[in-house]
Nucleic acid binder design. Structure first.
Lengths: 352, 352
DNA sequence: GGAAAAATGAGCAACGCACCTCAGAAGATC
DNA sequence: GATCTTCTGAGGTGCGTTGCTCATTTTTCC
């Protein structure tokens, strides 16, 4: 079972290696009938180019920049850790993955960072795009300069970015809404909602999804106005405390964004966590522990490892000009209860 | 930013290319101190072998056999389709993936198929292992012949198989149990359980997990004895009809195995699907539709695409003698509600 | 039929590594 | 210090492409 090589194709088509090469790589100067002959031969022999040989010969180098927020956010830390970990494992595959921390709340700085990139330094960019117009403009300019851009986790749908790597946040919100509705008894009750900011696209999408489901399928539940805690634990704790005091019939909390730790702490301190259905996002040591101790009832999550790997695959496909397999690149919405938590050992090791 | 090659390592270590090669490939005849020198140089230069060049030079061929049940089981069909689809896409990476249909209910035949494989024809086997002792013995013998074996979807923990690619079925059962408990009101009720056969390991594991959670956290729910429908739609429909008749307070169904279609049909026919919480396994066109029409309340699933890709990665790692990254290979338990169903377009296309 | 243009053949040098041989140097042993 | 053993260096070849060049053949068109 030897591999089929271009030699075999050349022989079968009755042409030379050079011609096969011209056809395979779309180079000019081949008659249409000859092209067809070669195509036929390749088809019947079931020829597929050897990726190793091609990779070696092309001596292409993929230099990707990942712009990921830093700061005290466990999910972003995981994302960044995964990216750095892949920088190591992929370096043998001619990929240089550079992770650049950004400040998600400073649109100017992020736009500035994007503005400094160009084709000479970078073959693709993945960015957790904060929802500032200047960021969108910077993405568009970067694309115009010929550098493919994908958005990561948080999208800018109106931009020219090639692809979005992340979950369908409307569906995530719907899922949270349904779990809330079904976990609660079928009786009138009030639900508290906390977001980082409704200016963030992922947060507003989740809210829209949750609201849609609750209003349609659980009309006995009343959603309170969304409070914005800027993903800050202290602020979120404060908000939870206030809402609990103001609404004695409060039966559920949905934290749309990060900073679940603050909500968890406040709820635990209130002593009412047993009666209150509480749903948050992202699997972190804190949400994990809160699930185990029944403070949190469900966690909606996305897998940072999958997202990084998907972003790398997509950027590579864009560089190579090959189509993206949409099915493989769709990021699943993970639903975690205390019963299906993955082992902690899943975090990748980083050398040094 | 040129790649670091063995030339650089050789120079840095002050030795020749041949010596670097000896060290890198564990060939004999190098002094310990020299080995250390080379290791150091490689380390400080951050050398990683070029996978393309190495792959080309090694001219290794990976021939993997996937033994997957055929028959009218949508999940197994998906699994098989994914495997065949990867047979195409991976052929450029020197991988030959051969999909062999097996009869999961005929242990002798499966064992016979395994017995016919050896190193001369095959470098690795992934098998959906039915729980027969002769299958286990055949797996052990195949391993002894030097062919690495991984089990897929359904495990044989007592065998010498190198790895299991599939979900933690106990956790899956626990998840189903908790969803059942939380979706139902906090009142005494009866739950019907259907499995393909408790002789199948995945089914018995799921049952154990479900029972554990229900008995501990929802003691007001009474689990009926598990009925075995052999994953057959007609039989399952029959079982559901009987149980509904026998138990007027029946408030939930958990179909532990395949054949959800039968359960769905019977439930729909009974006109009681609105009051009954119903949970099944695996995402198929039927379970998908049943979720949308509120007949099914939740589906616990595993992603066949992930499983095939993971099996291929693991087999390749076993062939190369490199360690398996456990974290990347853990298969997630998917929880689907009507709100987070992935698009249908995820199915891979098969040429021809 | 002849000139110009287009198509094709032949061949070569990378690419980075694996794997091999053979000669020669360094080290151990007495 | 001679001998034997163990290490090491130098060099070559092959892996299947890519991406050239240059010569040669075939086709096209006037």
């Amino acid at each position: 079972m030897r591999r089929v090589t271009i030699h075999d194709v050349a022989e079968a088509a009755g042409v030379s290696l050079a011609t096969v090469d011209r056809v395979m790589n779309g180079r000019p100067g081949v008659r249409k009938t000859t092209i067809e002959k070669v195509r036929q031969a390749a088809e019947t022999l079931n020829y597929t180019p050897d990726v190793f040989a091609a990779g070696l010969a092309k001596k292409r180098l993929y230099r990707f920049h990942f712009l990921i927020p830093d700061g005290p956010n466990a999910f972003m830390e995981d994302l960044s850790r995964e990216a750095r970990s892949h920088a190591v494992t992929m370096s043998g595959a001619r990929m240089h993955v550079h992770v650049e921390p950004i400040d998600a709340f400073d649109g100017h700085r992020v736009a500035g960072t994007l503005a400094m990139l160009d084709r000479s330094a970078c073959d693709g960019v993945a960015v957790v795009a904060p929802a500032f117009p200047e960021v969108r403009a910077a993405i568009d300019r970067l694309q115009a300069r010929g550098v493919p851009v994908v958005t990561l986790v948080s999208d800018h749908p109106a931009s020219t970015r090639q692809h979005f790597v992340g979950i369908d946040n409307i569906a995530a919100g719907r899922t949270a809404g349904r779990l809330m509705g079904r976990f609660l008894p079928k009786a009138p009750a009030t639900i508290g909602l906390i977001a980082g900011s409704l200016g963030l696209r992922d947060h507003s999408d989740r809210y829209a999804g949750c609201r849609e489901v609750v209003e349609r399928d659980f009309p006995h539940l009343k959603l309170l106005k969304v409070r914005e805690g800027r993903d800050d634990n202290a602020r979120n704790a404060d908000l939870v405390k206030k809402m609990l005091a103001e609404h004695p019939d409060l039966a559920g909390f949905y934290n749309i964004g990060a900073g679940s730790r603050g909500m968890i702490a406040a709820l635990q301190a209130s002593g009412r966590s047993g009666d209150i259905v509480c749903i948050g996002h992202e699997l972190t040591p804190h949400t994990r522990e809160a699930l185990m101790s029944d403070v949190l009832d469900a966690v909606i999550a996305q897998d940072p490892g999958h997202e990084i790997r998907s972003a790398i695959r997509v950027l590579k496909a864009l560089c190579d000009g090959v189509p993206i397999i949409e099915g493989q690149e769709r990021i699943r919405i993970d639903v975690f209860l205390k019963d299906n938590l993955p082992d902690i050992s899943e975090l990748p090791d980083l050398p040094g």
